[in-house]
């Protein structure tokens, strides 16, 4: 009997760790006052925005998510009235789970500089992004090439150009 309980316990423990596949998150770090770790639920806490953009199929799609500068402001990045002087030499480096990296100058993300919206999206046409694209993807409104619409985002790091 004891033996069976042990086996049962081991089995449960085993299933426990199997089922516990981790949740993908985005880490916000670097030149910030409070580093953030954002999961799907956290993203819903921010104001939601949509951006329409063509995908590879050539059709318009509606992406929804959160304006990147809102997330950076929450982390204490020098945007808005603070985006001047040496802070204009800062950039955001976005990294994906495959190691791909793209960068944006902070000024490209700031409403005071541009009306173009750049969001961290988690949905396409109301549905979660496909596994190979998500759960988080940067969508750059109106940018001709899709290369900076980086998929499977895992980290956003604010840095000074050296």
């Amino acid at each position: 009997m004891k033996k069976y309980t042990l086996i049962l316990l081991l089995l449960i423990a085993g299933f426990g760790t199997r089922a516990q596949t981790k949740e993908a998150v985005v880490k916000v770090s670097g030149e910030v006052t409070s580093p953030l770790t954002i999961g799907s639920a956290d993203l819903q806490q921010y104001k939601q925005t949509t951006v329409i953009r063509k995908d590879r199929d050539g059709k318009d799609h509606t992406y929804s998510g959160v304006i990147v500068s809102d997330i950076l402001t929450k982390a204490g990045v020098t945007l808005g009235s603070e985006l001047r002087g040496e802070n204009l030499a800062k950039f955001l480096l976005v990294e994906a789970s495959d190691g791909y990296q793209v960068l944006f100058a902070l000024a490209e993300l700031d409403k005071g500089f541009t009306d173009r919206t750049i969001i961290l999206a988690d949905k396409i046409d109301g549905q979660p992004l496909a596994p190979a694209d998500g759960p988080f993807r940067i969508i750059v409104q109106d940018e001709k090439k899709p290369a900076r619409c980086i998929k499977q985002v895992t980290a956003m790091k604010v840095m000074f150009a050296k």
Binding site: Q20, K22, S97
Partner: peptide, 14 residues
């Protein structure tokens, strides 16, 4: 593959 340490299903066989 990478899933061994990231624990993400999307990293299996990566």
């Amino acid at each position: 593959g990478m899933a061994a340490f990231t624990g993400l299903v999307t990293d299996r066989g990566r």
